[in-house]
Design a protein around this nucleic acid. Structure first.
Length: 438
RNA sequence: GGCCCUAUCGUCUAAUGGUUAGGACAGCGCUCUUUCAAGGCGUAAAUACGGGUUCGAUUCCCGUUAGGGUCACCA
């Protein structure tokens, strides 16, 4: 039999980190078992459901490359829900109860309650083993507000059955919900799916991740410049591990190594430092062409020629962890050497040597620089290196780097010269010599 | 509060009766670079507590403590 997994988010907020991980595990399991991964939008809460949120679910799933094989929208199953509600009432497994409304006790409403004989319900969980819960306290719980307005538990059970879901892999917060869903299944005569309840993702203080205090929506991580593969790799290892020391996994490797029964039982703290590390690893693995495209997108606001921007990638690529760091570098003026007229502090320019020595070194660099084409930082380094070696690297390189950038901190002088190009580099070196002469 | 679940370095985790308790991130140190990063090398850091069972417990059992989940006419 083909296995079928699903995620069932409600479109009441932006696609959540926790849902992303649930989606990943469902997707991994489906891919591994040659099964089908289903997305069902649970939009039965008409008040809170919004179209924007619904499209965000699909947008982010695509971004993460966890594209569902089939998509359903719960509200479209309303007739089916009503029909089954009616059959339950007809067979007296459920009944209509006229009682004061919970929200407005002055109003009498007709809710549908399931006849619950109580007792112990046991189910096997792929992650937790046998779970037993006494359902007596639940009483005859409500399964629908009205005959055509079913509640979450009822809709879930019906849709899972209709969509032939074989494995319900979801968050731990549903463990306590499972017995009542089983009760509904039994009343309906449906087959019971296999359950697996994932541990929750926690905030650093070990409490539930809250929207107020933490970034929880996938779109936020995306906006901050995380790479989807890095994000997926990181969340895969939040609560699961391969049993080996491997941490970097391609999608295929993840599918192959994934073992649902090896999933952790306790909640896992979301550690952004580790996510950043993963992102760095994935950034390093990109080709120059790929990383250039991504970095160029971050550079739209700075005033530099296309050529300068292209070359600037060389100075940025190894200095960032997430793409958004480029914006921070801009804000911290770390890239201003490309654009603005730089300001040199004459006292800083020579470094640890005398003004005369610094001026001499800078002058000696000019003929070396004039001879070359500035095709790469390496070419520039080759042209200058022996002179720098012979005269003290720092004595030569510090004035050069400072002359080109006017900054205490910057990329290495060869990369900076490459970014600036031959003309600007020579102009700035000459300018610095002029300052030292005056 | 009732019920359910969980408990190894700060964090993610490996090791299910015998290990110097391993790895990764973060930290710290050194190195490379006369800048800042990145890189390389190294280092510190854990079995929540108390009882059992056992020749021997991180590992099995019980209790305590702590944390989480859930107890809707939300999903």
């Amino acid at each position: 039999m083909q296995i079928r997994t699903r995620i069932a988010p409600s479109p009441t907020g932006f696609f959540h980190l926790g849902t992303a991980r649930t989606a990943l595990f469902n997707w991994l399991y489906a891919r591994q078992q040659q099964g089908v991964f289903v997305l069902r939008i649970e939009d039965t809460d008409k008040e809170r459901s919004k179209a924007d949120f619904q499209s965000d679910i699909q947008t982010q799933l695509e971004w993460l490359k966890l594209v569902p094989d089939e998509v359903y929208v719960q509200s479209q199953n309303q007739k089916r829900h009503t029909a089954l509600l009616e059959s339950l009432v007809a067979s007296d497994r459920a009944y209509i109860s006229r009682e004061p409304s919970k929200e407005d006790p002055t109003k009498i409403v007709a809710v549908v309650r399931l006849r619950n004989r109580g007792g112990l319900v046991t189910f096997r969980d792929l992650i937790r083993g046998e779970v037993a819960v006494d359902t007596t306290d639940l009483g005859d719980f409500v399964i629908a507000r009205t005959m055509d307005d079913p509640l979450f538990h009822f809709a879930v059970v019906v849709d899972d059955a209709d969509e032939q879901i074989t494995h319900v892999i979801r968050g731990e917060d549903h463990v306590s919900n499972t017995p009542r869903q089983i009760l509904i299944q039994e009343a309906l005569g449906f087959e019971r799916p296999i359950y697996a309840h994932l541990p929750l993702i926690l905030a650093p203080d070990r409490t539930k991740l809250s929207k107020r205090k933490h970034a929880t929506s996938v779109r936020d991580f995306r906006a901050r410049g995380y790479l989807p593969d890095a994000f997926v790799n990181f969340i895969a290892l939040l609560g699961w591990n391969p049993g080996t020391e491997q941490e970097i996994f391609s999608r295929e490797e993840l599918v192959a190594a994934f073992n649902i029964e090896a999933i952790q039982k306790g909640g896992a703290v979301f550690n952004e430092d580790k996510l950043r590390w993963f992102n760095r690893m994935y950034l390093n693995a990109l080709t120059l062409e790929e990383v250039t495209t991504l970095i160029l997108e971050q550079l739209v606001d700075i005033s530099a020629t296309e050529g300068e921007k292209q070359r600037l990638v060389r100075a940025i690529r190894d200095r960032i962890v997430v793409l958004d760091d480029v914006k921070h570098m801009i804000a911290a003026h770390e890239l201003q050497f490309v654009t603005d007229a730089i300001v040199l502090d004459p006292a800083r320019l020579p470094g640890k040597q005398s003004v005369g020595e610094a001026r001499k070194h800078l002058s000696e660099l000019i003929p070396c620089l004039e001879k070359i084409a500035f095709n790469s930082p390496e070419e520039i380094k080759d042209a200058l290196w022996s002179y720098a070696e012979n005269n003290g690297r720092g004595n030569v390189l510090w004035p050069m780097r400072y002359a080109l950038t006017g900054q205490e901190k910057s990329p290495d002088p060869f990369t900076v010269a490459y970014v600036l190009g031959k003309e600007k580099t020579l102009a700035r070196v000459r300018g610095a010599i002029g300052i030292l002469e005056s």
